[in-house]
Design a protein around this nucleic acid. Structure first.
Length: 845
RNA sequence: CCCCCUAUAGCCCAACCGGCAGAGGCAACCGACUUAAAAUCGGUACAGUCUGGGUUCGAAUCCCAGUAGGGGGACCA
């Protein structure tokens, strides 16, 4: 009986796939079962997998980007369950942050109201979308129960000297009226959040000393090779930006303390003909202050001009060099030479020591500067071109020679190559006590204080009377959390200082001794909140500690993390840093938080990023309503490799729905009973099923979800044929195939798979059914097709036993009529035999 | 300017260690069912792998050079 006949006889109802009815049938069952809740007692003997999606920010309802990210994370979580693992797959909300505050200001409401309403909305959308979350461990970073431990973390950092305050030039967002971390400033100089052009301000702010961990953060990336996308590893390496070289101390005439400079080329010290300091450095200000009024005036004007520049102008490497002479001289420690000290904005105050030795002959920037201000250029490395000719003097050519060469004009270094000269120069400096080998980094300390309301209050008290002026005191652990005061009556509008400062009742504290203090008015960067949340999930409801080290070490590190590449250097770097700190504090056994990382692409519309302003938004909610969760999830998984962007114009949700209906009907057609002996089934179909069972795990583990879905489509097609035109609906192999389809399909389409599972006579839930392993004996082929090539062209295909010997294969190939025709009267010069695949014959005339 | 990734049918994408270029889907076309359409079912057709070299018996796959698109970094001493 074929499908049409079945339709005619049983009526439309029984044969029609109705996603809405299927969703309505299973949601209440799952709600009741809570199949994905994980016990906290470690009693489960199955091996463990911790699978985590980057938690969402509650900026409204879920959107397509969420649908994609959570689809992929869920595929992996469900996969490991199917493989017999105890899987932890929690969910929470990253619910502090500026959007809530800005929305609250715009609507005149409390940020809490907006935040928690959005969380509720997202929760109910998630329920329908059906990721396999453990809903018993939900956390929201804006709950006092969570941020209490965020404050605990801050105090731990403070105790270890890893949290500190300093005055420095910082990135200031003039729209949001708050400081930003370096990581939050995009390469075009705009704010990651508001899009405003970031300006520099000198402010006293809180920092986490991430630079102390720079070497480990860089070196440990090697452990993640192959487990994290290469792109992310490279981005982090670039961001940390370690340079090796030397620190060299220069004396400055009329100044007691020596000035250290960092250089990667200590071999060129004899070619240093001037020194340059950053105009916004303390040293520049000091040197200018002790100069003539004219010099001082020129410097002040230059400093002002420098600070007016936009980030874009400043980053343009092609622009003309500018600077002022500070009327001071430094002494070159290797040759006692007196060299002038200039201030120029091509030297950065916060990199190295904010001062450089300029070697114009061998550094293009220094050369540009030297030529502009007519400073001497001295060649100390003789560099040759490919033909062995000495390159022209940079002073004439205008091109600095930065390559390898032989040292000249450099006393003891003369005749050495670049590498040896660097080593020797460091040796000489160390012997004289005027320098040493040194490293420096592009990475800066993490600025974590923000002048906004909706975040974790920094648990520090500042002295508020004469007797304790300038003192800082951490809030005692037992007094945590320092709760956010109600927003009522506070002006949340950005104005450059934290709104919390105005909450005087909250801010003013008198201690047991009667001393007056005021609370630190700033809140923490929300990236602090998200830098350790994955630890909290293990004991999300524990009010005695931030996380339970026993549980964390049993489950951690996270086996599979999934999220967007936009966090390549923000969240992922901070999390790695905090994990290492907590390891050093003795809480964690591991030093890297995320063993494997999947970065999904973006969902686009006609090649453009979806956005409200562009009006090309494909709404998650409406797609969910129109096609159902399963069709949406299958569409996302099938669209292509998960790392690639998905253009919504290229996909077909209807096509996915059609496939689901076909799969579902196969299950409905199965006519054998559960438990039937599969061994008696059709061998051809069984081979096909077991090939799928054998291949699916590798495919899923390599994130080839699109291929798995394609293989499922193929399996459904083959099974349909077996039912209609082959073994028939009662053949045990048809049941075996349908059950395999239901189990594997459950990764992508949990509702449809559950309904199939039920039709096949099994109890819910298919999500906890462990996949059967493939039967090896069904995977070996008896006969194979052997290809015969003559001079690289396929000339025949021979059907031979799979166990054919090399000699037999070659003989069969030579015996082939079409092969002989192809060879003709040419002479055979080589025969390559690779059984059971190919015989390749090479000839010549 | 430097670094990384990608390029296969009209479109989205598969192809293990180098071994028959095609798994799957979309769109198209033909047929079945239907009064008709939709849905469903069956079938058909469509590329030689961005370009140019090289290695090899054999290259989509490895190497070199280039083109196009995407991403990252960039006055970092």
């Amino acid at each position: 009986m074929n499908e049409q006949q079945a339709n005619a006889e049983t009526g439309v109802d029984a044969a029609a796939y109705d996603f809405q009815a299927i969703q309505d049938r299973w949601l209440p069952v799952w709600d009741e079962m809570k199949p994905f809740e994980v016990a906290n007692d470690l009693s489960d003997q199955r091996p463990k997998k911790y699978v985590l999606d980057m938690f969402p920010y509650p900026s409204g309802d879920l959107h397509m980007g969420h649908a994609e990210a959570f689809c992929f994370g869920d595929v992996l979580a469900r996969y490991w369950r199917g493989r017999g693992y105890d899987v932890l797959h929690p969910i929470g909300w990253d619910s502090f942050g500026l959007p809530a505050e800005n929305a609250a200001i715009k609507r005149g409401i409390d940020p809490r109201e907006w935040t928690y309403a959005n969380i509720d909305q997202q929760k109910s959308s998630f329920r329908l979308y059906a990721p396999s979350f453990d809903w018993s461990r939900v956390l929201h970073t804006s709950d006092p129960e969570y941020y209490k431990w965020n404050q605990w973390l801050f105090l731990k950092m403070y105790e270890k000297g890893l949290a500190y305050r300093k005055a420095s030039w910082v990135n200031w967002d003039p729209v949001d009226q708050t400081v930003l971390a370096n990581e939050q400033v995009l390469s075009d100089g705009t704010s990651e959040r508001s899009g405003a052009m970031v300006v520099k301000k000198k402010l006293t702010q809180w920092y986490f000393r991430i630079t102390d961990y720079a070497d480990r953060l860089l070196d440990d990336l090697d452990q993640l090779e192959g487990q994290w996308p290469t792109k992310v590893l490279n981005m982090q390496r670039n961001w940390i930006g370690r340079s090796q070289g030397a620190e060299v101390e220069f004396e400055i005439e009329g100044r007691d303390a020596k000035v250290p400079v960092f250089t990667t080329r200590p071999d060129t010290l004899h070619g240093a003909t001037f020194m340059v300091v950053a105009p916004d450095s303390d040293l520049a200000a000091e040197l200018a202050a002790s100069s003539s009024p004219e010099v001082r005036e020129a410097f002040e004007a230059y400093l002002t001009a420098t600070q007016k520049q936009s980030e874009i102008d400043r980053q343009n490497a092609d622009r003309e060099k500018t600077g002022v002479f500070l009327d001071h001289f430094a002494i070159n420690p290797v040759n006692g030479e007196r060299i002038p000290v200039w201030a120029s904005d091509y030297v950065l105050a916060d990199y190295g020591h904010g001062a450089i030795m300029a070697v114009p002959a061998h550094d293009q920037r220094d050369l540009d500067f030297a030529l502009k201000f007519e400073l001497p250029v001295r060649v100390v490395v003789e560099v040759r071109d490919e033909d062995g000719a000495v390159l022209e003097d940079p002073a004439v050519s205008g091109v600095a020679t930065a390559g390898n060469g032989v040292l000249v004009n450099s006393e003891e270094l003369n005749g050495l190559g670049k590498v040896e000269a660097i080593a020797k120069a460091i040796e000489v400096l160390e012997a004289r006590g005027t320098g040493r080998a040194a490293k420096t980094y592009r990475l800066r300390d993490w600025l974590i204080s923000r002048q906004r309301y909706w975040g974790t209050p920094i648990p520090i008290l500042h002295g508020a009377e004469e007797s304790n002026e300038g003192e800082m005191r951490p809030v005692a652990h037992e007094e945590l959390p320092v709760r956010l005061p109600a927003s009522e009556g506070l002006d949340l509008k950005p104005k450059g200082s934290s709104p919390l400062g105005a909450a005087t009742e909250w801010s003013n504290v008198t201690d047991a001794e009667g001393q007056a203090w005021t609370r630190d008015p700033d809140t923490m960067d929300t990236f602090v909140d998200s830098s350790w949340y994955f630890l909290r999930f293990l004991s999300a409801n524990d009010d005695t500690q931030a996380f339970d080290p026993k549980l964390v070490n049993a489950w951690g590190p996270i086996d599979q993390y999934a999220g967007g590449v936009e966090h390549a250097i923000l969240h992922l770097l901070y999390s790695r840093f905090i994990t290492k700190v907590l390891h050093d504090l003795g809480y964690l056994d591991f030093e890297e938080p995320f063993s494997a990382l999947l970065n999904q692409g973006m969902v686009l519309q006609d090649g453009a990023k979806m956005s409200k302003s562009k009006g090309n938004l494909v709404e998650f909610a409406s797609e969910l309503k129109a096609h159902g969760a399963d069709a949406l999830r299958v569409t996302l998984a099938f669209a292509g490799p998960p790392e690639d962007d998905i253009d919504w114009a290229d996909v077909s949700v209807q096509g996915s729905a059609k496939f689901l209906a076909r799969a579902w009907r196969v299950a409905g057609d199965v006519a054998s009973e559960p438990g039937v002996d599969f061994a008696a089934g059709d061998q051809g179909l069984r081979r096909h099923t077991h090939k799928l069972l054998a291949d699916a795990p590798t495919l899923v583990e390599n994130y080839k979800f699109n291929v798995v879905v394609a293989r499922l489509m193929d399996q459904v097609n083959v099974t349909r044929k077996a039912i209609d035109a082959g073994a028939g609906a009662a053949d045990p192999a048809v049941r075996e195939s349908a059950e395999a389809i239901a189990m594997i399909l459950s990764l992508f389409a949990p509702y449809t798979a559950e309904d199939m599972w039920s039709k096949l006579g099994h109890e819910a839930t298919v999500a906890l059914a462990v996949w059967p392993s493939a039967d090896e004996s069904l995977l070996v082929e008896d006969e194979v097709t052997l290809i015969v090539q003559v001079d690289g062209k396929v000339r025949d295909r021979l059907t031979l036993p799979a166990s054919v010997s090399e000699a037999d294969a070659e003989a069969a190939a030579r015996a082939s009529q079409s092969v002989q025709r192809a060879i003709g009267d040419r002479q055979i010069v080589n025969v390559i035999v690779r059984v059971p695949k190919i015989v390749s014959i090479a000839t010549k005339p």
